[in-house]
Design a protein around this nucleic acid. Structure first.
Lengths: 350, 350
DNA sequence: ACCTGGATGGAGAGCGCTCTCCCACTATGC
DNA sequence: GCATAGTGGGAGAGCGCTCTCCATCCAGGT
């Protein structure tokens, strides 16, 4: 139609570059993808032609033949039950937890020039969308961060034969790779620390007990406390939210006003719990020592700042991404799980 | 190579569907895309063939010819200065602000079967990556959420002729669409409320004053206070972070221990400030009334819960997305800006 | 009976790229 | 000298889809 106006470089193609460089399309492709040997002189000519034409490879065309998109999905599969139709899926991202995971994923992908596609999968319809999105070749695989225990998405992905990696061990064993932290060991760290501080009347606020992570943190904590001579400790179940931390601590104060140490299964709940302890006139950590879990941004927002069991989430997220890419690369690869060790970050609250 | 094993449906193509339905590729395409009239009987046959074959259209192939990817980038352009090379771009997503924007974007895109690609653009290299990512046709346009004032990315996008919409008014006018809230009006709401409560010695903690939003919130607040007979009010500048809220409030307490009302330019700083006020023994709201800005999740995590100026961020983000899609659809479209009205959400802090 | 025109389906040309062939050329071995 | 292997470049066939033509059919007007 229109002659190229010099001012509008539009998008030039491999063909254009080849013409300018005086070589064939194939050779340009070889230079770009670094495949096979190409004469250095010709390489140089091609590179110049690329910068002259302002060439940028067309991903669609490449995908069409390579059967790879070079992008992956980051699926946040919240607690949402069926039938929930919140038009604005709130506070899923508000969770400081998500921030660190996203950072880890982005940090790993960035050097590769890749970027994740953000998807939510709360409802059955949304899960269908995820599957068909992947099947259409919009992304090569999925990273799944699932907050709910009975999330059916992992199984759907496995059944569809789509590469996927989970952020946490699935409640029921299915053949899928995942990364996780040694929750049990985390519980042990918290117990040891509280005991070492001299706490004698220790309690714990757990996460929702249908989640493996919650169970394991509790088990590790109980076990270790038992070993230290405290076989029975008060337990209140929360749901990982700020509010539930407050509620749980209210109850704890009512039923066991004499506690002098609390292990709380995540920082967000701990943040809520600290407010309640303060309202009850307890000095932290002198009257009551508090240990959280996660080392999320909430831990720093607490006053006093929270002593907490740190999950290396960025590293875990990066590893999760690495695992996914290797599954994409090599579909027959065996499923793997990588478990990270938690560490105790000591601040002011215990 | 290998015959289709019936157990592995692999991916069937338009051609397969056409064969099963006994029609041509073109007709199947027409049915799928709902273009032109197709005989109802044939439509039905095609639909059945689609479900029999488990067909899912290949996005790469479609993109190649339509020159559309059907996906957009959500670019978070943080404060990061040049040379910063944080491998894990922390706390950008921890900000409760981001959560609501993401929700709005996802909420709008979801019914369209679209999902945003998450990108960070802190450094010059990252900005280059964004541009070339778009130029390669990985996404049709960009939503830009920029926290820093002097972000060069908007201009880069405009210069490259790439469709983009900003979440806030750019500091320097450039031809680009954006959504924003009437920050000035928000400042007015806060001032009116504090005065109506009977506050006489009012102060404010602002955001970084090189950001238009901060300037406008302050201007609206000052203006209105002046109209109420308070032409001079103490001002401390913060940087929107939790910590800076604490620091600023410390200073305010030191310099003006008698304040009885504070307008704080975002909830995160307000959260920090409340802790300081509490440490100084001030009862909220009786001794000091506090009004925040944003109505982010932080407002609910405050004790007492924060009275705050609400930005309808989900609606703004949805509108931003709508604007972007219309620019993608119609490249010659005039740039537009849409300004939303803030509202005052009254809780316990004022 | 003929022409016109509105519907509707099919044929086929690409979109921009990769990758398998194949060819030309040089270096090596007998 | 000739067969053999190795190296580097070109030709061209698609990847799966859309979309422009074109062919066909059936009304309706003359």
């Amino acid at each position: 139609m229109s002659e190229d106006l010099p001012s509008i470089p539009s998008s030039s193609t491999l063909e254009d570059v080849a013409r300018v460089a005086g070589v064939s399309r194939a050779t340009v492709s070889r230079v770009i993808n670094g495949i096979r040997n190409v004469d250095p002189d010709i390489q140089e000519k091609v590179r110049q032609a690329i910068s002259v034409t302002g060439y940028a490879p067309n991903r669609a065309a490449r995908s069409l033949v390579t059967r790879r998109t070079g992008s992956i999905a980051l699926v946040v599969s919240g607690a949402g039950d069926e039938g929930e139709e919140d038009p604005f899926p709130n506070r899923v991202f508000g969770d400081p937890f998500f921030g660190r995971v996203a950072s880890g994923v982005l940090g790993f992908l960035r050097p590769l020039g890749m970027h994740p596609v953000l998807m939510l999968a709360e409802t059955a319809a949304a899960r269908e969308q995820v599957i068909s999105y992947l099947r259409q070749g919009n992304a090569d695989g999925a990273l799944l961060v699932s907050s709910h225990a009975a999330d059916p998405l992992p199984k759907l992905l496995v059944d569809a034969g789509l590469p996927a990696v989970l952020f946490a061990r699935p409640p029921r064993p299915i053949p899928i790779s995942y990364v996780d932290v040694a929750h049990r060991a985390g519980g042990t760290l918290a117990a040891d620390h509280l005991v070492a501080r001299g706490c004698r009347r220790v309690a714990t606020i757990t996460g929702p007990l249908d989640v493996p992570a919650s169970q394991d943190r509790l088990a590790g904590f109980q076990e270790t406390m038992a070993r230290h001579g405290h076989p029975y400790i008060p337990i209140v179940e929360g749901d990982f939210s700020h509010d539930s931390g407050e509620t749980a601590m209210q109850r704890l104060m009512a039923e066991h006003p004499d506690v002098d140490g609390v292990f709380i299964a995540n920082d967000l709940m701990a943040q809520g719990a600290l407010l309640v302890l303060r309202d009850h006139g307890r000095r932290i950590p002198d009257d009551v020592a508090v240990v959280g879990f996660d080392d999320s941004s909430a831990a720093l927002a607490c006053r006093p700042q929270l002593t907490t069991v740190r999950q290396p989430m960025e590293d875990m997220a990066a590893e999760m991404t690495r695992l996914l890419l290797s599954h994409v690369e090599e579909p027959e690869r065996r499923v793997t799980s990588v478990i990270f060790e938690p560490t105790l970050v000591i601040r002011q609250s215990a």
